[in-house]
Amino acid sequence: MSRVTVDGTPVEVAPGATILEAAEAADRWVPTVCFDERQAPFGACRVCMVSVAGSPKPVPACTTPCRDGMEIRTEEATARRVSRAVVELVLSELPEPPAPHTELAQVAARLGVSGSRWSGAVHAREDDLRHPYLTLRHELCISCGRCVRACDEVQGAFALTATGRGFDANITAGLDAGFEDSTCVSCGACADTCPTDAISEVGLVAQLERS
């Protein structure tokens, strides 16, 4: 077991536990976007930054293992500024703010990020509504990789792929053939994990439009 403190609260964690797990044990909130407890930590989004005493710069909580004696601060100013900036950048690419119920919107709200200071290109609307249950709205994709990992690590269908680079990074089902003509088994694990509703359900999208 390792003994660490999170915002001054001492907690004991199992060997190999991450800072994120320690924070959870200490009941302290760390913002995350690309993390899903059903998947191996990915460390892609850089939203879960925290400070560790003695470390020159913030570290990602989801992939950094705890060391005995570590002093972790979840709301240290530099780390929190990085988290906010990352969320702001992510929001700057979306053609519209994410729906309030989405994980991204909730993380943004909790971090006090509303809108973005940076105006520029936003994703063009491109919706794939061919599947009877699953909707794929590419313009909402933030390339967090959760859907691809859910498909690989939870279901094992390997139907989704990350495509493009930079601003054009997105995801594709069955090499653009759509869900139905891919190896997709319609389990919906991708829609379940998506933090922006880029992949969602026909019924939920309809519900959202009604309300």
Partner: peptide
């Protein structure tokens, strides 16, 4: 909503499904 099921998701702490379900259970 209004007496109709809108969506079904897996319980994260389901002992058998551990946060997953298939297209029958979900959809």
């Amino acid at each position: 909503v209004d007496g109709r099921i809108v969506s079904i998701g897996p319980a994260l702490d389901g002992p058998a499904n551990q946060g997953h379900t298939c297209l029958k259970g979900r959809f």
